[in-house]
Every structure is written in structure tokens, then in C-alpha cells.
Design a binder for these strands. Sequence first.
DNA 1: TGTAGAATCCTAGGAGTCCTAGGGAGAGTG
DNA 2: CACTCTCCCTAGGACTCCTAGGATTCTACA
Lengths: 191, 191
Amino acid sequence: MARAGVTVERLAEAAAELADEVGLENVTVSELARRFGVKDASLYSHIRNAHELRVRVAVLALAELADLVAAALAGRAGKEALVAFANAYRDYAREHPGRYAAMQVELDPETARASAARRHSDMTRAILRGYSLAEPDQTDAVRLLGSTFHGFVSLEQTGGFRHHARAADESWNRTLDTLDVALRNWPVQTA
Amino acid sequence: MARAGVTVERLAEAAAELADEVGLENVTVSELARRFGVKDASLYSHIRNAHELRVRVAVLALAELADLVAAALAGRAGKEALVAFANAYRDYAREHPGRYAAMQVELDPETARASAARRHSDMTRAILRGYSLAEPDQTDAVRLLGSTFHGFVSLEQTGGFRHHARAADESWNRTLDTLDVALRNWPVQTA
DNA sequence: TGTAGAATCCTAGGAGTCCTAGGGAGAGTG
DNA sequence: CACTCTCCCTAGGACTCCTAGGATTCTACA
């Protein structure tokens, strides 16, 4: 009998595709084995357990998105960079909802270090070069941007904005305008 | 044999507690039945399926948080109201991670209408009275606030801020300062 | 080329979960 | 007391995760 040619890489890729199709919580070892024409027990020589599958999707997604963001950021600065970053982020989440959901799973410290998570915060910091913020304000701003982008995309995905006339796109653009203004008028310490 | 006294309300309450203890994804019909000293099949005369359990936790959490936010908002306005709202939100998420996660499940339109979701957006709008924003900017601002709060709390929960010296609390306070400034200097339409 | 060892896949099966079907026992009502 | 409704039961099917141990295929090296 011919071998199915299962590898961890192909498994992660297939799991990511499956996640985008049916949602991350429906990514199952059995279904994946079915897609490879293999018994589910066979997959356990490639992965340790079902959780590792999700972690691998997360790592894959983090790397993919980091590449996309890097490309979007190339040659841009200031607000242009902010908008490019944000749109790359949001577009990815909409095209790959399962991969995006996977990015939110908690990674153990080692996996997190080996992942592209660092590249993400580094690129966010790069955006802030256009706004002249020193530490620790820079870290606060990185967190503000990350929070707002993720929060918007997350609420949009779970249908939070659907039952209202105002289009999500317009709110998104105004959100970016607002962030741009906020970064340029970063508040001085009040406490 | 004495009856266990299972009701939908007690089920939802127990499911919410279980979710806070072991995470929403580990809220299982079987475990819940165990806690009531009852066979799992017995619960299906109270709920239709496992999904309904999570929906009921979501509805419960939305109502609880709406009450807390309403109390926090009483007698406050402007930035004070903004901060009170935000802290009530974040505190709830930290004290009740499972309930909070449940709030992010997609509700069907009917359930959403019957839930406290509307109270949440109404109260967010109430905050904005201190900032004199007309529609559609008000809707955009509501979404910005919701996104930022949810995004921050969500990233904080999945450990996004843990591997950095800067304390999350301080970033949170600066985020609120920034939002306050942003709402007071709401950008005029650029496009 | 022959073969040892590693990698890949298999069968078999246990445990847990979700859910349905159908039956019996307690509680309240006439 | 009898009737009915609700609650809870047993029984069991389908699916998932995962382990153990065996068989097959591929690879590399003598």
C-alpha cells in the first residue's frame, strides 16, 4: 500500500485550511486523518495530541501574518504604515478566521519565543517610529494598537457590528483616524 | 429517590461557575450532570444540547456585567464614567474568565435581542454624552471603545502582555487616558 | 545487493462525550 | 384515589481522543 505522505508540515497546513472552513473548535484529529486517507491513530506518530494541532496552526498563522504585515509595511511610514498594518491584520482575519482564532490560543513560553510573535510586536514598534514615543509610552502604545485591532476584528467576527446600519468598514477607518490622532497627541502622564 | 432539583437557571449558574474554573471549552454536559448527582441523559429534558449551555452562560454573563457596569456608571460622567465602565469590564473579565469567554460566542439574532447586549451598547453611548459626538461618529466611538476594552482584556488573558517588564495595569491606565483624549479631539472626516 | 533500523501506517480497544429512545417513579391536581 | 406531568433513569449508538503493539515500507549502509 502506498504511503499517504503525512508530515507535520502538511498536517499543520491541512489543519489550518480545515480551521478556516469549519472553525478551529471543529478541527479534529479524526477529520484530518480522513482527509489524508489514513486512520486517526496513525497521526499520533506525527503529533502528540490534538492540542498540538491547534498550536501548530497558531504558529503557522503567526508566521504567515507576520510576512503579510512586513510586506504591507515596506516603504511606508507614519499614518500610511499604521493603516497598512491594520488592514493587513484585518484582511487576514477575515480571509482566515480559523487561523486567526488559533492565533489566540495560549502558547507555552518556549513555543512563543520560537514563534513569529516577537516579529509582530517589533513591527508594531516600527510603526511608532513615525510618532516619536519613548519608553515606556512606546510599550503602552504597542498594546493600545494591538488591543484595538484585535478587539475590532474579534467583535466584527462574532457579529457584534452586524445589527446596525453603520457599516463596519467606515467605523474601521474612523478608528484608524482616531488612533493616528491619539498617537500624535499622546497624553502626558496625569497620575 | 429524591429529585435533584435541576432547573435551567441552576444549570446555567453551575455552568458559569464551571466555566470560570476550568475554561468554557471544558464545560461539558457530563461534568455538569456529575455535579448535580445526576446522569448526563437527564439534563436533556432541561436543555436541548451542549451548545445551549454555552449560550445560557453568555446570556447570564451579559446580564451580570450589565448590572455591574450600570452600578459603576451611576453618578459619574466624562472621563470618570469612561474609567468606571472600563474597570468594571476588565475586573469582570478577570474574575470570571469563563463567563467572559462565553460572552464572545455568537448569539442568534433572537437570543441577542432578548439578551442584555443592547444595554451594553446603550451604556457605552451614555458615556459618550460627556464628549458631545453626533451620529455617525457616536457609533464609531462606541465601536472603538468596545474594541479597545475587549481587545486589551482578551490579549491580557491569553498572556500577550506577560513577557514584558511593563505592567499591564499601567498600560491599561494609559490606554484609558488616550481614549479620553481621543474622544475629546475626535478627528474630523478626512476622506 | 542484502539487510538493519527507522519511519509510517495498521488493528484493536478503552475511556469520555453527546445525544436519542423509551420506561418508571415522584409530585401535584381532580 | 386515580391521572397526568415532570423529572430522572437505563440502554445504547455515534463520535472523538489516545495507547499499545504489530506490520509494512522506506532508507542507508555494509
